[in-house]
């Protein structure tokens, strides 16, 4: 059901030329020059150490790889990661939560 609502929301935002995060509330990430990443719309922290941070929402996951990673701010659905960020990868698993 959630997948259907998400798909409809995506189509509406595409049709109205909106930014997708307005209607879908998916995970979004903004990275500043590889030293700070602002993540929005997550629900769970799956793994954290100074080299890897894995977070998820529904069946979508996000893996941030770097060194000396610090979670400088955490809130209910957003966080700020600081450190040397090398890459950010999205993971998807159809129909099953991560």
């Amino acid at each position: 059901m959630a997948e259907i609502i998400n798909r409809i929301s995506r189509n509406i935002s595409k049709f109205l030329n909106f930014s997708p995060d307005i209607l879908t509330h998916d995970i979004s990430i903004t990275i500043h020059s590889g030293y700070q990443a602002i993540v929005d719309g997550y629900s769970k922290i799956l793994e954290y150490n100074d080299n890897i941070l894995r977070i998820s929402k529904g069946n979508t996951g996000l893996k941030i790889i770097g060194s000396n990673l610090i979670l400088s701010e955490i809130s209910q659905d957003g966080l700020i990661v600081e450190g040397n960020i090398y890459s950010a990868e999205f993971e998807k698993r159809g129909g099953q939560d991560l």
């Binding site: 769970k44 922290i45 799956l46 793994e47 954290y48 150490n49 100074d50 000396n68 990673l69 610090i70 979670l71 400088s72 701010e73 955490i74 809130s75 209910q76 966080l79």
Partner: peptide, 19 residues
């Protein structure tokens, strides 16, 4: 179990780091 703890207490924490 740091992952579970962070998920439960994320409302009130900041400056989480591993040293």
């Amino acid at each position: 179990n740091v992952g579970d703890f962070l998920n439960a207490a994320k409302k009130v924490l900041w400056m989480v780091r591993k040293q």
